[in-house]
């Protein structure tokens, strides 16, 4: 069993366990699998929704992975994507008249910049004060949520809606979804996510700063001895992680709703941790893991509608079982080593 096949094995085990649970709940596991697969990939609209759920997960997965590779744990992608989405929506709401290419660039830059700024804070605190990034990123999630609520309610509130949301961005900002997906919000955010994943992969493996980042993550004393400025690299890693999370604004705000809604994120920042873990912090793995989670998310809605005993909570059980199976890495290694050992 090679290292690369392990996550796939884990997914299979998790899925199998999940199906056992559905069988216990009184549902035919084959039917459950069929509903999940048909819901997630069976129609253009269904496939589109799967991809639409997967796209933000690629960004947050990359965000978590970049920090992981530097030996840092980014639990703050949720806050970073909140700030990114808020910034993009704010630019679009304050200057609604801007035209297409400039407007996209402005909103996208604002999203990345806001995410980077929010991400850099725990990086700086870790580098200079040694305070742990897990606590700081969690706390910054709350601050981001509070700040975003405040801006939504009292600064940019959309007076035309009962729901708390910002005024819609100007039409020049919107990235129209592709018609092929029959109304699902899939557009240029998807190729952007794939392109960014490739770019991050290249940067980590082929650039000097990428090497410094990995070196720090793998062996800090050695990296320091090699003359790497650990503090600088940590700040950089966190800023980059924040910027990647901020890009969630592109598919969600510019490509879908055109406004900021305080509860818009389906826990993308936290699911990103699972995506990065399942994808082994490699961009290719993250793309595949994001697709899987997107499919489970979409398929779950159909399960809720098409079965009697299985609700959408079951998809959460599925996801959790897969994550557990992946996290039980050591256990698999033990199993396989024992089997591989010549008798």
């Amino acid at each position: 069993m090679t290292n690369r096949l392990q996550p796939i094995f884990a997914v299979a085990v998790g899925l199998a366990l999940g199906l056992v649970v559905t069988a216990l709940a009184g549902e035919n596991p084959l039917h459950v699998l069929a509903v999940l697969a048909r819901g997630a990939f069976g129609t253009r609209y269904g496939l589109g929704l799967t991809l639409a759920y997967a796209t933000p997960l690629v960004f947050t997965g990359l965000s978590v992975a970049v920090a992981f590779r530097a030996g840092l744990f980014n639990v703050g992608a949720e806050g970073q994507l909140t700030m990114g989405a808020l910034a993009a929506a704010a630019v679009g709401a304050v200057w609604p008249g801007w035209g297409a290419p400039g407007a996209w660039l402005a909103a996208g830059t604002a999203a990345v910049a806001a995410g980077m700024a929010w991400g850099a804070v725990p990086g700086v605190l870790r580098a200079w004060r040694g305070s742990h990034e897990v606590i700081n990123t969690i706390m910054l999630n709350f601050i981001a949520a509070g700040l975003a609520n405040y801006v939504t309610m009292y600064v940019l509130r959309n007076p035309a809606s009962q729901n708390p949301e910002t005024r819609p961005v100007g039409p020049g900002y919107m990235l129209a979804p592709w018609a092929w997906f029959a109304g699902a919000p899939v557009g240029w955010g998807l190729p952007l996510a794939i392109g960014v994943a490739v770019a991050v992969g290249w940067w980590l493996e082929r650039s000097v700063t990428g090497l410094e980042l990995r070196a720090l993550g793998e062996n800090e004393p050695a990296a320091r001895a090699a003359g790497i400025n650990a503090g600088r690299v940590r700040v950089l890693a966190f800023a980059l992680a924040g910027g990647l999370a901020g890009l969630v604004a592109v598919p969600e705000v510019l490509g879908n709703t055109g406004r900021f809604r305080p509860a818009f994120s389906a826990q993308y920042g936290f699911l990103g941790i699972a995506v990065a873990l399942l994808g082994r912090n490699r961009p290719g793995g993250i793309l595949a893991a994001a697709l899987l989670f997107g499919a489970l998310q979409k398929g779950a809605t159909d399960l809720d509608m098409e079965t009697d005993h299985v609700t959408r909570e079951l998809a959460l059980v599925f996801q959790a079982l897969i994550i557990l199976a992946v996290a039980a890495e050591g256990a698999w290694e033990m199993v396989f080593r024992r089997r591989a050992r010549p008798c």
Binding site: R4, P7, I8, A34, A37, A40, F41, G284, G285, L291
Partner: peptide, 21 residues
């Protein structure tokens, strides 16, 4: 290979789906 494999797994799921539908 990783990606292909993951997609392949779902293709299996879809064909099962057709059987069980």
């Amino acid at each position: 290979r990783w990606i292909l494999f993951a997609v392949g797994r779902f293709a299996v799921g879809v064909s099962l789906a057709a059987l069980a539908a």
